Simulated assay, not measured.
Amino acid sequence: MAPGFQRRGPMQPEAAEIFEAQRPRLLRLAYRMLGSNAEAEDMVQEAFLRWHGAEGIDNPAAWLTRTVSRLCLDQMKSARSRRETYPGTWLPEPLIEAEDDALRPDNLTLSLMMALERLSPLERAAFLLHDVFGQPLDEVAATIDRSPAATRQLASRARAHVQVDRPRYEIPRDAGAELARAFFEACKSGDASALGAMLAEGATLHSDGGGKVHAYPNVIRGADNLIRLLLGLQRKFGDQMRFLEATMIDGLPGFVSRLDGNLQTTAIEITDGRITALYVTRNPDKLSRVVPH
């Protein structure tokens, strides 16, 4: 139990209700900071234990946000060291969005999550808390233990990095599903002409197998290289390619499929109507929550 906290005794029903009302937002915040649903759940559970042991809290939402944010900052330090030795490309755990999730709580996409990875933990926390979750600057400063002026500078630097990577093209959900299926069919049939029409010249492919299943350790760059790679996969695994469903993956159109018997998700970033990046998650540890319908 953290120093200065006092034991409540058995948790009062109203205290549990307050926490449960905050849980979805806290999970979203922790996921955005860590890129892992499992780690996010651990941080929120730890915050719950601290909430159970604290009293005299005037603003539960602010207290819980601060507690989860500080827990995540500590976790991010160890996560960074782990990712330095991660086998191959690291991608955030795919966040599959429900059909009725028309109003997203934030405006981040998987590609922007990748941009956040290049920020320092403090820059990431300042940007998420202030720009994405709308916390006043003085509250953010107290959370990350920096002055308001330093916090403003951290958020400004982060904002500049993220704006560079912000997609300039949004696609309606139905159109995204059509494109996802068309892209899969072109891959399965080995239609080089169709692939060439869909891919931007500088398109990239990022694949995360976590050392558990086959994936490409380095980012594949350029439409020609991608087409050669995708046609090679078709020749080798064409009869084992299975389209399971089109979906939204962390704000990007995409699909769930099987290749060589392994489940995978593919998120598709689109700029000016053409595919600029593919994010393929194959690490089974990151797909435990993916349940195709």
Rank of each mutant, 00 (worst) to 15 (best):
E99V: 13
S288Y: 07
G88M: 03
D272L: 05
A203Q: 02
E117P: 07
K188R: 14
T276I: 07
Q22I: 04
R146W: 08
A200E: 11
G202Y: 10
P24V: 14
T151A: 03
S78Q: 12
Q75P: 03
N59Y: 10
I96M: 15
L108R: 11
I268V: 10
E170T: 14
A125K: 01
H161L: 13
P172H: 07
R235A: 12
A158W: 00
G209I: 06
P94K: 06
V68L: 04
A160H: 05
Q163L: 11
I144C: 03
K236R: 13
V280Q: 11
V44A: 01
R82M: 02
D131L: 03
P92I: 05
A175P: 04
P24L: 07
D224Q: 09
N107I: 09
V68C: 01
R80E: 05
S120V: 12
R28S: 09
T266Y: 08
G53T: 14
T109S: 09
D131Q: 15
D42T: 09
T271P: 06
A15H: 11
R166Q: 08
D138S: 11
S207P: 03
A182G: 02
E245K: 08
D250P: 03
R181K: 11
A155D: 06
M43F: 11
N218Q: 14
K188V: 08
T247M: 12
D250H: 13
D239Y: 09
C72V: 01
G196Q: 09
L205D: 06
R157N: 11
R166E: 10
L154P: 04
G273L: 02
A182Q: 04
L129K: 01
T271E: 07
S36E: 00
D285F: 00
A115G: 00
I275S: 02
I227L: 08
D224I: 06
Q240E: 15
Q163V: 07
L278Q: 00
I18C: 11
A277P: 01
L278H: 00
G254R: 07
E245R: 08
G196M: 04
R152S: 15
L230C: 09
E55A: 14
Y169E: 06
D74G: 08
D145F: 13
G211Q: 12
S207Q: 03
S193K: 12
L287G: 07
V213P: 00
L154G: 04
G134E: 11
G53V: 06
A177I: 10
G196D: 12
P253M: 04
M76Q: 13
I57C: 07
T276E: 15
G251K: 02
Y31I: 11
T281Y: 06
V219Y: 15
L49D: 14
F48M: 07
A54H: 04
D106G: 02
D191I: 01
